[in-house]
Write a protein that binds this DNA or RNA. Sequence first.
DNA 1: CTCCGCCGG
DNA 2: CATTTCCGGCGGAGA
Length: 874
Amino acid sequence: MQKLILIDGNSLFFRAYYATAYTGGELMKNKQGVYTNALFGFINMVDKILQQPYSHVLVAFDTKEKTKRHEAFDDYKAGRPPMPQEMAQQIPLIHQYLKELNIKDESLAGYEADDIIGTLSKEAADLGYEVAVYSSDRDLLQLINDKVTIHLLKKGVTDIEDLTPKTFFEKYGLHHSQMIDLKALMGDPSDNIPGVPGVGEKTAVKLLQQYETLENILQNKDQISGKLGERIRENEDKAILSKMLATIDLNVPLDFNFHDLERKQMNYEGLVNFYNEMDLHVFIKKLNKPVETKDDFITKIITDHDQFSTILKPNMAIHIELADFNYHTSDIIGFGLSDGETNYFIPKDIGLASIDFQLYLSDPSIPKLTYDQKAFRTALKWLGYDLQGVTFDLLLSSYLIHQKIAKEDFKVICMAFDYEDIEYDELIYGKGAKKGLPELSIYSRHVAKKAKAIFSLQPLLIEKLKTLELYDLFTNIEMPLAIVLSDMEYSGISVDQNELKQQKTNLKNRIDTLEHQIYESVGKKFNIGSPKQLAEILFVDLGLDPSKKTKTKNLSTNVDVLNTLIDKHPVIPMILDYRQLTKLYSTYIEGIEQSIFADGKVHTIFAQALTATGRLSSLEPNLQNIPIRTEEGRQIRKLFVPSKPNHYFVSADYSQIELRVLADMANVAGLIDAFNKKEDIHTRTAKEVFGSETVTPEERRKAKAVNFGIIYGIGAWSLAEDIHTTPRDAQAFIDKYLSIYPEIKTYMEQTVDNAVKQGYVKTILNRRRYIGELESPIYAVREFGKRTAMNAPIQGSAADIIKKAMIDLHAYIYKNKKKSRILLQVHDELVLEVPESELVEMQKVVPEIMSKAIHLKVALESSCDTGKNWYELK
DNA sequence: CTCCGCCGG
DNA sequence: CATTTCCGGCGGAGA
């Protein structure tokens, strides 16, 4: 099959830039600060396009030179804003990419990409080729014929509309040859093509359906009555000019032949180097490089446990390779061990059967370097072994250096620090359904290389931690916390399975009943869980008013919308109930049920190197979002019970920790005074803002909304939504608030200023958050960066404080040999399991330790509660 | 895989 | 000219 793919390079490049500029926050760039977002989008699109079978390919670009269209019409393409710097920088990258791909990259002075594509599509079609053109420019539609299909990029990267003569007719009601005439009549503001003023798409189509061509319209111009006829007669010259401008030149003098467009092998090494330079590692994975086995890295595979006594030394790097992400259940594949000189692979059974090796792992006086101490320690615990003496953790240290690094594969962490001799896990083990173990020689080497990497990177990372003033945070907080979290995760939390079954049946019955009532109420069956189908029912069948749209222009059916419709139709409250009950059923009842281990407990994983602010997050299952706000949902908490008889749950939570942190960091006299006098902080704020001694509940509610909003870097618009007033009043309200607490205003301004200058903000314990968004050329992204800069030190400092408290509490428990165990952390709250004999002590000690964790200008207060299950707390 | 929706602090 | 309060995890639908 002979198939030619023609790509409109300019069009893809523009689309790529703007599609990725608005979505991902800050503009993407590589380590050297070169912007790569448009390159990234461009590669994605080209990659997708080239997945089909084809024999020939070319990418065409415009040049800066004037074309004959400019000569004919001075204002052609006038009024276009200049290309942003961030975008222009990426043009050479695009060309380099195409060069490495070995794809013909063509432009010609005096002609546009359209003309090159038009000429080639005609020649190829004449030779009997099938032609596929890719662009987002509708102008190219004039090239459609039986051999030539135009693929219009609609939005983003994936949405492509294929136009053939048939689909063109169905869409426009015109023959494809009439496309040029259509544009001649309508004009095109983006190219500054005038067209006939006052004639839009509707009128133009009608005219062309009647008269077929522009020429025929002009011949019959006197028969066209009214204002329309008048306009056509007055603007005849504009229409003719427009047609000329819109017509693609099919006779560009190209000095190459089809042979030059043949599909060729890419330059593999060059492309890998290029991706590495641009930090576009995701594309390297896609290349599916075969695993190479020839280089000078030597892996010693331990086959006999006698060997250990001579190998094991202090300060080696040890890596435990796990088969799955969830280390509570995962198999251990084996151990990597390295002293920087020799690199070993220890098969799981050989290692664990050796007393020498067991003692080595568990000896706290032998320092060891690892990748993820929490995972390794927990995985070993499940098998009955202990890991102690870890002094370095690659995952945690890289997370502190930059919060984004640690989200990726092991290799990406290494590459962030210019360590190259390591492969992607995906390349070794495959992914998805294809995941599995390759032969021993391949994976043993991979694991040993990881150990070598840990060993090699340790000095550099320690040095970086010190220069960034993060070393204390690393050694005093994150490292000891890993052990605390490991204990918490391993302890797990018991689930009352009878309660679970009961709630499950109960919910199921209520959902079934509701489902039938809903079908009856609207008169037909549909999938209530589908927002799309629900929108159809509500806004089309029932004719209700759609008040809001989603981000992608669909009609929204979320709670806010449904609540505004609540008395407009009896089905609305049923749907709200249905949503709540199915949420509880699938996310919580079924979700938790699936996560129960053989010991009758759930063992969550607290991700310690994930969030941008320094908070923890909880996974599989997430125990940080168990319902509490509605009574119905709160019932779920009855599932969680102490694991032993005569034990209780004790929970303690910080009161207003974020506002206290703000009061401290910004030194806010009014807030500090209020907290020290133990006043209700929202009431106090309301008194000051409204200038009265008595405060209505409504006033307190508003004050609370601002107090929270201020932490998030509030805007008037959203505060207005929140407290149901106009943005104008909301702004006045914020102004008043800031005049009462003027230190907040100063602090926020300084924080943002500093963030802009330095590129990051810091918490109480020096934790950094880099905010690249502040450099974005896009207003909305920069504004987002400012809010982040204001919020991150507050949220992050609160996270620092509770982490310190957890470490102190854990130390207290061990030092005093208590049987109480910390089970959960929910951002400002700790939940413990406490034997009856320790109840009184822990009720006193836990809040005390939390309060004293870090000294602030205001007291940290913590309340405490006790119960027989989680529901009874608070 | 992305979107929508909803649970928590 | 615009902008729409921060940080997360997870389930189901639909492509």
